[in-house]
Amino acid sequence: MPRPQILLVEEFYFAKKEWDDLACIADILVCDSPNRESFIQDCASKYNNITCIYSSWRSAEITGVIDEELISKMPRSLRFIAHNGAGYDQIDVSACSKAGIMVSHTPGAVSRATADTAIFLILGCLRNFPQGEYNLRKGSWRSETSVEIGNDPNGKTLGILGMGGIGRSLAERARIFGMNVIYHNRQKISWTNNARPLAEYVSFEKLLAKSDVLSLNLPLNSNTRHIISSLEISKMKRGGIIVNTARGGVLDTVALIEALESGHLKSIGLDVFEEEPHIPRQLVENPRVLLLPHMGTYTIEAQYDMEKLVIENLERAVEQARLITVVPEQKGQQEHIMTKRRY
């Protein structure tokens, strides 16, 4: 009986030993298709017996979005897509489910590094550090007219929109700095393993109204695109701060710039953008904006943990026809989904 085949549409850079071990239970194919058109053609030939695909955000440079069109061209043997990343907006999960393809992602592996990044942005915006750096790079020192005096995090209210693994890690860190933490989520969290809740659950409206700092920590999908726009920003405190380490599309960039220029927002900290790597000039040139080039998980430790979890998902897929960290849209539906697509 032929061994399962795994198609690698991205390299492994950190968990190389674990990846080599995976070759003991499956045949590894390396994608050499230069673009989407070639990839589709190759799915009918050299990739026509694959069981699993390993993808990441870089894979889209070859395949484009894994949408209904692409899925319809993939071999019927494909059962699993193991994606490297907590966010998976490059994959149409609904189309995958209809085709009987299960999808995994790497939520827990990114929590610590992304939460650390959010804390960096929060502290920088509260203390007006971007203004100070902006002055220094121009050859000027701090003065009362060039750098506004900042605020301590202690006693400020942090509102977290999306209390998944990253949100929880952020809440833990924010409490160390003396911040009051509130959150809004699709469902209220049960804090059974904590002496007291990490954060207070509030309505979306109250989250906007009470937050001194609003942190976005939710996935990007059709329901969350531009979840924060002009109307939502207008409901925030004047002088508030927004930090985004989730996906650029959850935040309306035009509305954000308008609120910053009008003074309604004091400062913003961004690690993600709507049209990466393009960043609007109004953000780049504004000294009240703290910018990072999508570095939330850009650490050796986080990258290793992410790759390792992808490999564990692939191992489970090959050996047990299951995934460990199934995307939320497919949780509890594996048996139903898997009956839709057969070898």
Score class of each variant (00 low, 15 high):
178 G>R: 08
178 G>I: 05
179 M>K: 09
179 M>N: 10
180 N>C: 06
181 V>P: 09
181 V>A: 08
181 V>F: 12
182 I>V: 15
182 I>N: 08
185 N>D: 15
186 R>P: 01
186 R>F: 02
186 R>S: 09
190 S>L: 13
190 S>F: 09
190 S>R: 09
191 W>C: 07
192 T>M: 09
193 N>E: 15
193 N>F: 14
194 N>S: 15
194 N>V: 07
195 A>F: 09
196 R>Y: 12
197 P>W: 13
201 Y>T: 05
202 V>T: 13
203 S>C: 12
204 F>W: 08
206 K>L: 11
207 L>N: 06
209 A>C: 06
209 A>W: 01
211 S>L: 13
211 S>N: 13
212 D>M: 03
213 V>L: 12
213 V>I: 15
214 L>C: 10
214 L>Q: 11
215 S>W: 14
217 N>V: 06
217 N>P: 00
217 N>F: 01
217 N>R: 06
218 L>G: 01
219 P>Q: 06
219 P>F: 02
220 L>N: 12
220 L>C: 09
220 L>M: 08
220 L>Q: 07
222 S>T: 13
222 S>H: 11
222 S>N: 14
223 N>Y: 09
224 T>V: 00
227 I>Y: 01
227 I>W: 01
227 I>F: 03
228 I>W: 02
228 I>G: 00
229 S>T: 01
230 S>C: 03
230 S>R: 12
230 S>K: 14
230 S>N: 07
231 L>C: 02
233 I>M: 09
234 S>P: 00
235 K>I: 00
236 M>Q: 03
236 M>I: 00
236 M>E: 02
237 K>E: 01
237 K>W: 06
239 G>C: 01
239 G>D: 00
240 G>S: 13
240 G>K: 02
240 G>Q: 01
241 I>W: 04
242 I>S: 03
243 V>R: 04
244 N>K: 04
245 T>S: 03
245 T>H: 03
246 A>T: 03
247 R>M: 03
248 G>N: 07
248 G>E: 02
248 G>Q: 06
248 G>R: 04
250 V>P: 05
251 L>G: 07
252 D>H: 12
253 T>M: 04
254 V>F: 10
254 V>W: 01
255 A>D: 14
256 L>H: 08
257 I>K: 11
257 I>W: 10
258 E>P: 05
259 A>V: 11
259 A>E: 10
260 L>G: 10
261 E>I: 09
261 E>K: 15
262 S>T: 15
268 I>A: 15
269 G>I: 07
269 G>C: 08
271 D>V: 05
271 D>A: 07
272 V>P: 11
272 V>W: 13
276 E>W: 06
277 P>T: 06
278 H>E: 05
